[in-house]
Design a protein around this nucleic acid. Structure first.
Length: 584
DNA sequence: GCCGTTTTCGGCCCGACTGTTTTCAGTCG
């Protein structure tokens, strides 16, 4: 078995939860495993080492049983309890859970009654009409299973944040235009700025809910109406994106908006907090629990901030609602003042037609000025990236000269000459130091030899960051969302190295990257690592990605002062000219 | 399986929709 990691520990706990569900175990026990997985994922510290050392005492949500299991898992790489559970069911059974409408009870019935343990077997049984004969299933269930399987084949089921944005805005505008709607919003993971979303959750405040669900179910561009009731409807767009609508009253708005914005974990935490004050929180109200003598605050709450206030908390921005410390920070008054899009003064890491971009140097400069930026960093590929038409030393020198010539004519705007230099297999760079020294800055990225063990890849990247000419680390894990897994790196070590060497880590906000992942920024920030929000633009239109970059940066708790490209031109110029070991 | 300033036992967040039922279980969010 591969070396255990934080994620593999959490994944095993989640898998145990699923297996216990299949066995029909106590639902609260199942929840304890799920909760434990979440605690492991978001724990602030080296939980892997603590698990190895058997030092997990005192972590909320990890009791005696989970402590022992995590210790066994971290120190030996496997868990007997887990292995035994797994042995009770065939491997393929797990993929059945990905079919919409199938939960543990139905999967169990399909397996026990019809010996179905794979998507293929499920399809064959449905087509043969066998499923409709099962108790608890009927003709409709069988049709739904076939439809869900077809849908699964056509669409991955998740979408990039930037990809769904136009649909979200279009539908939102149509809902707001309806005369019976007083307020409308997109809630859910879209509002929380998750890098990928599974569906869009719309919320409207109206006195005529049934009219709105009907309006929603009749929108343009719908492939299928999945469900349509008096207060709730679900549709699927032609691109496969599922959209849900909830219609509620004006008075319920703040409660519903909070509820449907999630995350689920954030909401659960708030509910538990409410219960300590004898209050029950749901999508309709924040009211006294049965039998409590206290007053009902529901009527005086007009917005989400009012709910937080009633619970003794500062307002929590939707991007932070992931139950990763934001509630504690809201209680103690330590929530960050988050970065705003208008704080950005420029951006680094952009390509031109000189390598694999589709806009020229002059076009990129004009586009950046059009957005009101004071500077734009150009960083075309280096020679090893021959697939991307990377520049050699000679072409790079010519580009530096071309940039200098353009800068002659600018007033209050500047192009910075840089490179996106390849980090070679051994951690050395594709350009020699004396070449890098001729540039304003340097982004270093991995573009080849992805399949290395974590240790080696981490060493490779650290060696690059230790170079005095490397300003920032580009797309740290090389992931392509929904397409390519990240290569394994030790984030903790890289963050520590970035802090020590004053190397910036990029938040590459190309919609398919969003790399480094938002989950790591809070920790990086606390260690003093600075971020640069870069679109990795290969066309003038790609500069728009910065909008989503800012939203994801906010999700990573980043403030204006944590982000290099919020500095005005004179300060950022001075900063780049200061030798790396003397930069603040 | 976890947790505790009402508790070391008895709670654990909860409502809408669908389909298969004839009063409700399962799934989803």
């Amino acid at each position: 078995m591969a070396e255990p990691t934080r994620d593999s520990l959490a994944d095993v706990l989640d898998e145990i939860a699923l297996l216990l569900e299949l066995k029909g175990e106590n639902p609260f026990k199942i929840r304890a495993y799920r909760n434990g997985a979440e605690v492991v994922r978001s724990f602030d510290g080296d939980i892997l080492q603590r698990a190895r050392d058997g030092e997990l005492k005192g972590i909320k949500g990890i009791g005696d049983a989970l402590q022992e299991k995590l210790h066994e898992l971290a120190s030996t790489g496997h868990l007997e309890f887990h292995e035994n559970l797994k042995a009770e069911f065939p491997e393929g059974l797990f993929e059945l859970f990905d079919v919409q409408g199938l939960g543990p009870k139905k999967v169990k019935a399909l397996y026990e009654e019809l010996k179905i343990a794979s998507l293929g077997a499920l399809k064959r049984a449905a087509e043969a009409g066998k499923i409709a004969t099962l108790a608890g299933f009927g003709k409709k269930s069988e049709e739904k299973i076939l439809a869900a399987l077809a849908q699964k084949e056509r669409f991955a089921g998740r979408f990039l944040l930037a990809e769904v944005a136009p649909h979200a805005e279009r539908i939102l505008a149509e809902l707001r235009a309806h005369p019976a709607v007083s307020r409308a919003e997109v809630a859910g993971s879209y509002r929380r700025a998750k890098e990928t979303v599974h569906d869009l959750d719309f919320l409207v405040a109206t006195r005529k809910p049934a009219e709105l669900t009907a309006h929603f179910a009749a929108l343009d561009g719908i492939e299928e109406v999945i469900a349509h009731g008096d207060t709730k409807a679900s549709i699927r767009l032609e691109n496969g994106l599922q959209c849900d609508l909830r219609a509620i009253s004006n008075a319920e708005w703040p409660f519903a908006l909070m509820y449907f914005s999630g995350s689920k974990e954030h909401n659960v935490s708030l509910r538990q907090r409410a219960l300590k004050q004898d209050l029950t929180l749901n999508e309709y109200h924040l009211a006294p629990v049965d039998g409590a003598t206290r007053d009902d605050p529901t009527g005086k709450i007009k917005d989400e901030a009012g709910i937080y206030r009633e619970l003794g908390l500062a307002y929590v921005d939707p991007a932070l609602r992931e139950n990763r410390g934001e509630i504690e920070a809201a209680e103690s008054g330590d929530l960050p003042v988050l970065l705003e899009q208008e704080n950005l003064r420029g951006t680094f890491h952009n390509h031109t037609t000189e390598s694999d971009g589709r806009s020229t140097l002059a076009e990129m400069a004009a586009a950046a000025r059009g957005l009101g930026f004071a500077y734009l960093g150009i960083s075309d590929h280096s020679k090893s990236s021959f697939q991307a038409n990377g520049l050699d030393e000679e072409r790079l020198a010519a580009q530096v000269a071309a940039i200098a010539a353009l800068n002659e004519d600018f007033d209050g705007f500047r192009l910075f000459a840089g490179t996106e230099v390849d980090i070679l297999k051994d951690g050395s760079l594709d350009f020699a130091d004396d070449v890098l020294a001729t540039l304003d800055y340097c982004v270093a990225s991995v573009h080849a030899s992805f399949s290395m063990p974590e240790k080696e890849m981490t060493k490779r990247i650290i060696r690059a960051m230790e170079n005095p000419h490397v300003t920032m680390m580009g797309h740290l894990t090389g992931r392509l969302l929904l397409r390519r897994e990240p290569y394994p790196v030790n984030h903790d070590k890289i963050i520590d190295c970035a802090a020590e060497t004053n190397t910036i880590i990029e938040l590459n906000c190309s919609s398919k990257r969003m790399d480094m992942d938002w989950r790591w920024w809070h920790r990086a920030r606390d260690k003093g690592v600075r971020c640069s929000i870069n679109p990795d633009a290969h066309h003038v239109d790609h500069l728009q990605a910065l909008h989503f970059g800012v939203r994801v940066a906010r999700k990573g708790w980043l403030r204006r002062e944590d982000v290099l490209n919020t500095l005005p031109l004179d300060e950022v110029s001075r900063w780049l000219q200061t030798p790396k070991d003397r930069r603040a």
